[in-house]
């Protein structure tokens, strides 16, 4: 039981591990484009249903808009979360990743980054277009996109914790929703709040700053939490 000589991963091995996981997951995602398309279509459809179901008045839609666009982003993220680790868990890849000499937090970070690039980023890009349906003006749309760019990575990061904790659990998908959606609530509040603030003639600065702070916090903390959860799931 010698506590010494545990080699600390250096920067090069961390970035190599990150790049390995990111590249591999992106390549796999690009080969299963249908799955990505389904998630984006889901986002587009959910967002487009609300104007059909409610009154077509500009005021009502403008009030609904930010909340709907954000809630749908949460649901789209949730929809794609099971894919993040379940496939790797099912085919034994996760075992090999956890047993590799490379730093596990860096490897899972690469996976989470790939998840955001394939789900969060497209949502953030699409949202301003969809916002047109809700009679949002130019500034509001920009703020919406900025808030989503800051907020969707938090969704991928927090969601990854839930996704690893529910690995191997029966009914993991619905359990995941119960676990993750409450964690998403602060992101939703500040994200939608940013657009509301602009509409009321205030600055969106505080909300965006809080989102950015939350993102930094999640970036630092989640890789280690997810790595620990992966090891627990494999035990």
């Amino acid at each position: 039981m010698s506590p010494t000589a545990v080699p600390q991963p250096d920067a090069a091995s961390v970035s190599a591990a990150f790049a390995w996981a990111l590249g591999r997951d992106l390549r796999i995602a690009l080969r299963s484009k249908a799955e990505l398309g389904v998630q984006l279509m889901f986002y587009v459809i959910v967002v487009s249903l609300f104007p059909l179901a409610s009154s077509p008045s500009r005021e009502v839609l403008a009030t609904l808009g930010p909340g709907v666009l954000w809630t749908a982003a949460l649901l789209a993220s949730l929809l794609s979360l099971p894919r993040l680790f379940a496939a790797d868990f099912g085919d034994g890849t996760l075992e090999q990743i956890a047993l590799s000499p490379r730093p596990l937090p860096a490897l899972v970070s690469g996976k989470m980054a790939a998840h955001w690039l394939t789900t969060g980023l497209p949502v953030a890009v699409l949202a301003p277009l969809l916002g047109e349906q809700y009679a949002m003006d130019g500034t509001e749309l920009w703020i919406l996109a900025a808030a989503l760019l800051l907020g969707t990575p938090i969704l991928s990061l927090l969601g990854a914790i839930g996704a690893t904790l529910t690995l191997g659990a029966r009914g993991g998908g619905s359990l995941l929703a119960l676990l993750v959606l409450p964690l998403y609530a602060p992101v939703l509040i500040f994200g939608a709040g940013a657009v509301d603030a602009v509409r009321s003639g205030l600055s969106a600065g505080p909300q965006l700053s809080l989102l950015a702070a939350g993102l930094l916090l999640a970036l630092v903390g989640t890789p280690f939490a997810v790595a620990a959860a992966v090891r627990i799931a494999l035990d």
Partner: peptide
């Protein structure tokens, strides 16, 4: 292990 750790897409 008994799981092949192969990605069908690759």
């Amino acid at each position: 292990g008994h799981l092949p750790a192969l990605k069908d897409e690759l």
